[in-house]
Design a protein around this nucleic acid. Structure first.
Lengths: 339, 339
DNA sequence: TTCAGAAATACAATCGATTGTATTTAATTT
DNA sequence: AAATTAAATACAATCGATTGTATTTCTGAA
């Protein structure tokens, strides 16, 4: 008993009027009398009418869909960003296609193709660790599909970003360690192609300099900051001739695996080595001792990025073509760095 | 310099043939010669043609979109399920709309409406903790939109599910505690409207019975198994007149917060109280001591559920109308229960 | 060479909503 | 009451691809 869906034509026929009037009524056009509108709305209700978005979007040549590319949705930061994105997008009548690059450039390229083929109205992207060029985003640019970078932005000019002040956060994290007596502070840096990691690193450097602590190249350990990398880094820390007493890691994952390794080696945290991470993953408050970290509200970033994107999709918007919004990030002090 | 997208008509005009032939060629219909196909494909390439899915889908009255409703994407289990769903769906040429009920029935209703309005071709759902009736899914049924439940299924007949054997898993978890010397085992139960929790509870009961341990109503603490609930439960455990020596929690979140509270009260885990959780969240392997838990592969469940759904969307499929697939779940033994 | 039958392609309607233009109806003015 | 103007509605084309039917072209047989 599958009843076919009612169309505006069914409504029109039932009321003996034209479908264009029905369409206008349903879109609340001033060209239709209130009386007719009422009649139409009533009948629409009666027939269980629902607009066919395919037809409507085809005519308007808009998909009301935005594409989202993130490294992986299982990261707490990204899943909360996605919550913010969806909330905002749905409220504006947009759907969201979520794709994971899994930190793989090739995959990111394929995804960009797919989104293009799906004719999304705009794209939100947080680039992968491997992304060192942006050719795959050219197609979007050429077709005038607005792109907004969030969190992991890129270093080319002329684009819009929603980010946090990574430099300041890196500075704060490092200064916090210094203020708790650390002098030999190692930095777990991320891959150098990502601006966020460069900036966190610069913040680290600046904090050292501000407190007249000599910067040492050997104290900077670069990696992809995965679980294994944290362990490798921890080993390197123990192998260093200097007496390391602090670690500022550019993400929580590496900080945590390092912490676990160090603890297993009999090092006490924070007494021997104090640690500060970055991102405030769920695990960070649970591990023993709880990890001090930089909190960045994924939800807020997602929301802001989506609003920015929607304003770009709406050509009538008066906002500047390219715009970078910098949100607050704050240090959460937990036991791993308090001594 | 925004060039308009090429259509089949552009190709047709350029080659002085009819657009229907172009359409057939691009769909590799046998009604077009190879020679013509080659010509068309070449020209399509030259013009950078990409099929307009809106138009195509409108004509076929299919959206090639499936809707997914989960309680929240930030849970490890669900984010991995989503990975599995997306992977499978994209490979089959489907897009995915992801929605979070946030354990709220009202929200779940709204989402069902939205998906209906978006005319998705099928729906994957893991119901919220509040969901105790399924009226909001009636609309989908009436419009013949296939629905597959995964993980959190419902207790009405005539539907398709992809689940794990919660009874067996509950049994295994409890028996494991018993085999490690526990006799007074408390069960953190979930909300009673969800089948998965009922089944885990029944498994617990069966294991007790098998080992001639008396079942006590007071040992069953029902809640929504959120972070706070774990703490409340832990307090109740300490207040019980009996000497509790084991806890089987129907999820990890409550198990972990309980564990933290108990540790803070000077209880040693697993010596005083052994604990087993459920779901294998990321935190579970990180907490001290690591939490024994039931591992259910979200990715696998997501993949299986999507394949099942796709087979239902494809009317020509010969699979039975309703089908329940039960996947394996296994106990991961970690320190929290080994004594 | 002619013609039946198959193969290849063209024609035209359709999916459902939108929108510029034309027409009818109603309201206002003189 | 006729003329002018505004308001309400109808007509018809369009978005781009698909598909049943009709027509043309080609092939091989008589």
């Amino acid at each position: 008993m599958e009843h076919k869906k009612a169309t505006i034509h069914d409504i029109a026929k039932a009321l003996n009027i034209d479908s264009s009037t029905v369409s206008r009524a349903l879109n609340n056009s001033p060209r239709v009398t209130q009386k007719t509108k009422d009649k139409i709305l009533m009948k629409a209700n009666e027939l269980g009418y629902q607009r066919n978005h395919l037809a409507s979007n085809l005519r308007k040549s808009k998909t009301f869909t935005i594409g989202v590319i993130v490294p992986r949705i299982s990261r707490h930061f990204f899943s909360s960003a996605i919550s913010g994105i969806e909330e905002t997008a749905y409220n504006a009548g947009y759907n969201v296609i979520i794709c994971q690059s899994l930190e793989d450039l090739e995959r990111e390229k394929t995804i960009a193709e797919t989104l293009l083929a799906n004719r999304v109205d705009g794209v939100l992207i947080s680039i992968s660790m491997e992304t060192n060029n942006y050719d795959h985003l050219e197609g979007l640019k050429q077709r005038n599909i607005p792109v907004v970078f969030f969190d992991r932005h890129c270093n080319i000019t002329n684009n819009s970003n929603v980010i946090i002040d990574d430099f300041q956060a890196g500075f704060d994290a490092t200064e916090h360690l210094i203020s708790h007596g650390c002098r030999n502070i190692v930095h777990f840096a991320g891959t150098p192609n990502l601006e966020i990691y460069k900036n966190r690193f610069q913040g680290y450097k600046a904090a050292l300099s501000r407190h007249d602590i000599k910067f040492r190249e050997t104290f900077v350990l670069s990696s992809r900051l995965m679980h294994e990398d944290g362990i490798k880094n921890a080993k390197k820390v123990l192998a260093l001739p200097n007496n390391i007493d602090g670690i500022f890691s550019a993400n929580d994952v590496a900080a945590i695996s390092a912490m676990q390794y160090l603890k297993a080696q009999g090092i006490s945290i924070p007494e021997d080595i104090a640690i500060v991470g970055f991102s405030n993953e769920t695990i960070s408050s649970v591990i023993e001792p709880p990890l001090s970290t930089i909190n960045q509200s994924g939800f807020e970033i997602g929301k802001t990025a989506t609003n920015l994107l929607l304003s770009k999709i709406d050509r009538t918007s008066t906002r500047p073509v390219y715009e970078t919004i910098i949100l607050k990030a704050n240090l959460i002090e937990r036991k791993s760095s308090l001594r």
